[in-house]
Design a protein around this nucleic acid. Sequence first.
DNA 1: GATTGATCATAC
DNA 2: GTATGATCAATC
Length: 221
Amino acid sequence: MPAPPESEAELFERARGLAGRSLGEVSAELGIACPDTLKRAKGFVGMLLERALGATAGSKDVPDFPDLGVELKSLPVDREGKPRESTFVCTMPLSDVAEMQWLGSRVQRKLARVLFVPVEATPEVAIAARRIGGPILWTASAEEEAALRRDWDELAGLVGAGHVESVTAHLGEYLQVRPKAAHSRVRTLAPGGDDGLVSVNPKGFYLRTKFTAAIVARALR
DNA sequence: GATTGATCATAC
DNA sequence: GTATGATCAATC
């Protein structure tokens, strides 16, 4: 496996080197089996890119490239380069989001600097034949950050005020909250209810497709 | 066809 | 069970 990149420029060059190559080629080089379907390997593409680029963070709550402060996100796109799915950002700390601010929040920290790597995700194309696209090193513009902050304030505000059960994926213009758990029977505690705590399915923050689509469009201009 | 809620694999 | 990586699939 490659060593971690020593600079952002080196990381970007490595990512550019993957552009145009297929998931099958890259996985073969790394000695990793490429699945025939993502049905039972949903994290395969993300894990493959992590290894190919030398990410080290593993399952810790820090960016994929801690020394660079860069988070890696694979972006499943159609043949036109448009994202096909929302992008998971992080879990929502339900029990203490009430005391948090946007600045310093997990969302703000995770999205401070992101390397998006588009990957072909057309159903008709076999996994191994899917090609990796050109990387996008992104930082939110003032407008993008303000928009994310508005959503975060609304969503975190509702949970902090004890209204977690009214928070659905319908809320949020660009940032939304959805279940994030092994299955719907998983429970965790959040502010609310008669005792001050309610048992709910764990939740996570996701970027809506239209938000990442705008990032891709901006990068192609 | 797009979106929301549900789910899958793996490491510790 | 908690974290990481996400896509699936029922529903709108």
